[in-house]
Design a binder for these strands. Structure first.
Length: 582
RNA sequence: CGGGGCGUAGCACAGCCUGGUAGUGCGCUCGGUUUGGGACCGAGAGGUCGGAGGUUCGAAUCCUCUCGCCCCGACCA
């Protein structure tokens, strides 16, 4: 390809709308352009890169027996009503009506469509397992599209689904996918880690997220360098040293605490207590379908509640902090003076059903201090087992950097940002049961197919690669994703000998099977070097002054090493380099 | 959906407070000089100032409404 004829609109300056590095570089390198919020066009370079990602996805899916489909992006509402997700999913789904007034939606994922094919066509356990996948456009009406290609409203996704006769089969299929995912991300030059994740509204028993570490990421990951334990903050646990309490009074003692509103206030209040000896009391309203439940959450004073853990723990679809009026109606006091002692009775009097859950780090604690459910009063000497009617003990605490690893005895946890680049789920029978996808087992009885679902975002891979592989001069594509293998830079096309040497080399490299970009533009050398660095082609061959003497320069984009090579040997040299790994 | 910011030439921005000829840099076109890390000189082209309504003799500038984009938060199969 000749640069002079190829469309690579590079930008010298950072576009004003771009904040994160990958977004800036993808725009500046002429890879993408924005059409609207969360909607981007791939320019020719971008299309080449995306195709390379997709090719890797295909190869690795096929290698584990995957069969490629191509399913519609436009779905009838009935399908989603069957699985229950037409109602379960809110505004994230693009919905529309056809001319007859029928409800349709744009697919945000394809469990329903694949399951409908499975139920119509799969009859016997003998046909299982099946591994089906597609590379398809997805639509999600994101509340807040952002960060370039990181959070999009329409994007390309490789989604795979496995169909097995039983849990054991699913475990095998899941493991195959997991290994394939590792190979995919490695081949794309991305450093990643696999974390335990919350399945969320997707349902199912187990899920792993593949996370790429980058400050632009939206998720928090907990990692132990010693043993490799890794988990999403939503799921992570840690070791906390147990606290030995001194024996307290025979019962709680109320004492006045005028003006004390926070845990911090009470630590400095005369007769107060340090944060780890306080019980933090939080009132939440949990929703599950149309049902609202009131929950009193008890945490150690110096610990932070993680709301997703709470929602997961009490099996609610959503939780929100109760409003001050709701709290007053329930416990007769304002936030700052709340506590678990006598809370059940107060709630009963207010005719409100109250569930009390407590973080496990509070178990068997005694001589604690907490609010008295009476403004400006607290209780000390509280023994949780004796004085508070806890309905359920849960892990609700937010893990913090520096805490002990829960899996190994020596490790210390680090918390950092990452972006989700892949997610694999053991779905189980959620969809096959709701949609009636069964096969006959060996006993001739219909059983629901056991499913798994596995997704990778193409744009997320591209974003992660750029986030992890760039320098001040631009993108450093891994060889596997680079839009060209090598760029040949003719420093001055007006010097005939130099230009002709470049033209000849261009042809030679192409005949050697390399994808070559020939920079034959009538520009100064500096401009060409800057552009080549920016768009991140792995190798650059500079045809300059020494060309008439049979010498060219080979520049390695990643290491920035610039070496003289004989013109007669450079083709073989680059060919060897381009074929070596990532 | 809540909070904040911004819409002026292809890109980055100034001008707005205090109403009166629409500007700067980069890019683009032409000519010349240059030619190894985003050259220089000269001459040009290019703008319904996001849109609608209003105030005014006069609106990029003031007021109202509206659309769009970005950031923080909520949300995120």
């Amino acid at each position: 390809m000749r640069w002079s004829q190829y469309f690579i609109p590079t930008l010298r300056e950072d576009p004003a709308d771009a904040e994160v590095i990958s977004h800036k570089l993808l725009l500046r390198a002429g890879v993408i352009r924005q059409l609207s919020a969360g909607i981007y066009s791939y320019l020719p370079l971008g299309q080449k890169i995306a195709l390379k990602v997709m090719q890797i996805l295909r190869e690795e899916m096929n290698a584990i027996g995957g069969q490629e489909f191509y399913l519609p992006a436009l779905h009838p509402a009935e399908l989603w009503q069957e699985s229950g997700r037409w109602q379960a999913i809110g505004d994230d789904m693009f919905r529309l009506k056809d001319r007859k007034g029928s409800d349709l939606c744009l697919g945000m994922t394809h469990e329903e469509v694949f399951t409908s094919i499975a139920r119509n066509e799969l009859r016997s356990y003998k046909q299982l397992p099946q591994v089906w996948y597609q590379i398809q456009i997805k639509f999600r009406d994101e509340a807040r599209p952002k960060s370039g290609l990181m959070r999009l409203r329409t994007f390309i996704m490789k989604d795979a689904y496995t169909f097995d006769i039983d849990r054991a089969g699913l475990d095998v299929s899941f493991a195959h996918q997991r290994e394939a995912y590792k190979r995919i991300f490695s081949r794309c030059g991305i450093q990643f880690l696999i974390v335990e994740a919350s399945s969320g509204a997707m349902g199912g028993s187990e899920s792993n997220e593949f996370m790429a570490r980058t400050p632009a990421g939206e998720d928090l990951i907990v990692n132990c360098a010693s043993c490799g334990y890794a988990a999403n903050l939503e799921k992570a646990t840690s070791r906390v040293p147990t606290i030995e309490d001194q024996s307290g009074p025979a019962g709680p003692e109320e004492f006045p605490t005028p003006g004390v509103r926070t845990i911090e206030d009470l630590t400095t209040f005369p007769g107060g207590a340090e944060a780890s000896r306080q019980i933090k009391s939080l009132v939440f309203v949990a929703t599950e379908g149309d049902e609202n439940r009131t929950v009193l959450v008890l945490m150690r004073g110096d610990h932070q509640l993680h709301e997703t853990k709470l929602a997961d723990g009490i099996r609610a679809t959503a939780v929100r902090p109760a409003h001050p009026e709701e709290i007053r109606d329930l416990l007769g006091a304002s936030p700052g003076s709340l506590g678990g002692v006598g809370a059940k009775e107060k709630a009963k009097a207010a005719k409100i059903e109250l569930k009390i859950v407590a973080d496990s780090s509070l178990k068997s604690r005694s001589n604690m201090t907490t609010g008295a459910n009476k403004d400006d009063h607290h209780l000390r000497g509280v023994d949780i087992a004796r004085d508070i009617q806890v309905d359920e003990w849960l892990d609700l605490r937010t893990v913090e950097s520096g805490e002990g690893c829960p899996r190994c005895e020596i490790g210390t946890l680090e918390v950092f940002k990452g972006m989700e680049i892949g997610h694999i789920f053991k779905l189980g029978t959620k969809y096959s049961e709701s949609m009636g996808a069964t096969v006959l087992n060996q006993d001739g009885r219909p059983v629901p197919i056991v499913m798994g679902s596995y997704g990778i975002g193409v744009e997320r891979i591209i974003t992660a690669a750029v986030e992890q592989r760039h320098d001040d001069d631009g993108i450093i594509w891994p060889k596997s994703l680079a839009p060209f293998d090598v760029v040949v830079t003719i420093t001055n096309i007006k010097q005939d000998a130099v230009r002709e040497a470049g033209e000849k080399l261009y042809g030679d490299l192409q005949r050697a099977g390399l994808d070559v970009l020939l920079d034959d533009r009538d520009e100064r050398a500096g401009v060409k070097f800057k552009d080549a660095d920016l768009i991140g082609i792995p190798y650059r061959i500079t045809i300059g002054k020494k060309a008439p003497d049979g010498i060219v320069e080979l520049f390695d984009r990643q290491t920035k090493a610039n070496t003289d090579v004989k013109l007669s040997e450079v083709v073989a040299h680059v060919q060897k380099l381009a074929l070596s790994c990532i």
